[in-house]
Design a protein around this nucleic acid. Sequence first.
DNA 1: CATTTCACCTGGTGGC
DNA 2: TGCCACCAGGTGAAAT
Length: 305
Amino acid sequence: MPELPEVETIARGVDARVRGDRVLHAWFGSHREPFKNSPSVQMQGLEGRIILGVERVGKHIVCNLGSSSAPQKKRARKSTAGPVAVQPSAQWIVHLGMTGRLLVTTPDAPVAPHTHARLTLASGHELRFVDPRRFGRLEFRDLAASNGIGIPVLGAPQFLAPRFVAPGAEPLSIQPAEFATLFHGRRLAIKAALLNQKLLSGVGNIYADESLFRAGIRPRRSAGRLTRIELERLRLALREVLQHAIRLGGSSVSDYVDAEGVRGFFQLEHCVYQRTGQPCLTCKTPVRRITIAGRSTHYCPHCQH
DNA sequence: CATTTCACCTGGTGGC
DNA sequence: TGCCACCAGGTGAAAT
């Protein structure tokens, strides 16, 4: 279900409720998908770990984990501002796909159908992954125990496996020149380019359509033929749409809810997405629906050029 | 290569 | 009520 604003909302909610907690037990309910590495690898990797914090990277939720041996106390140094950064020794990466949900519950809360993972925490809470369509993915990464090809390093300075990074650029912080470079020389539709996670991380169908409307650009336009001016309008529109949606807790289409089970409100602000045939909020022209890259695409034929 | 299509899944909705 | 076609917030493998 989620694009960047929904994933950001969920990651913040989960972080607030599990930061500093410890994984006592991990349960996985299926041996088919959605596991990038096996349930036993994930279970053994997770159990005993401290959760240092939870963050969003692209559309991924990254749980940063501390060592399972020594309890790592989080001590804020009084002389420095902000929390002390603790290097994670492992990461649990959750991708929600289309219908995935990551919830913090009490242990006695009824277990929803299609619950694929349950992490029992020292606080008594449970972190649950639910995903009816199973397009989501779960991955455990050990950052400390390998030299990059899976062989433990003894004695020598320890090689740290790379932390999880999104393949594409971050839409909230990308600068004008880099944004323009992403699309340079590309013939495909700008809508399709926005959805390509290797270019930008986090933009999905809703926010691609909404940002193109805000920028006044037709979704079928060739990405490489947009002018500098148009590209900069698009970069700013995208950033504003995403920031606005984050403030409203994301878009609740269908049954999306955040970590606390609360719906978002950005769906009330959609200008074109799923408004086929309804009047454009600016000019009253009926919103048109077409297909680009296999995805339904909504735009105003009068306001977008 | 770059770009498009399709398969992967389940469930909800609306027409007949 | 049942059946069926179609739709859905994502992504990568296969086809073009």
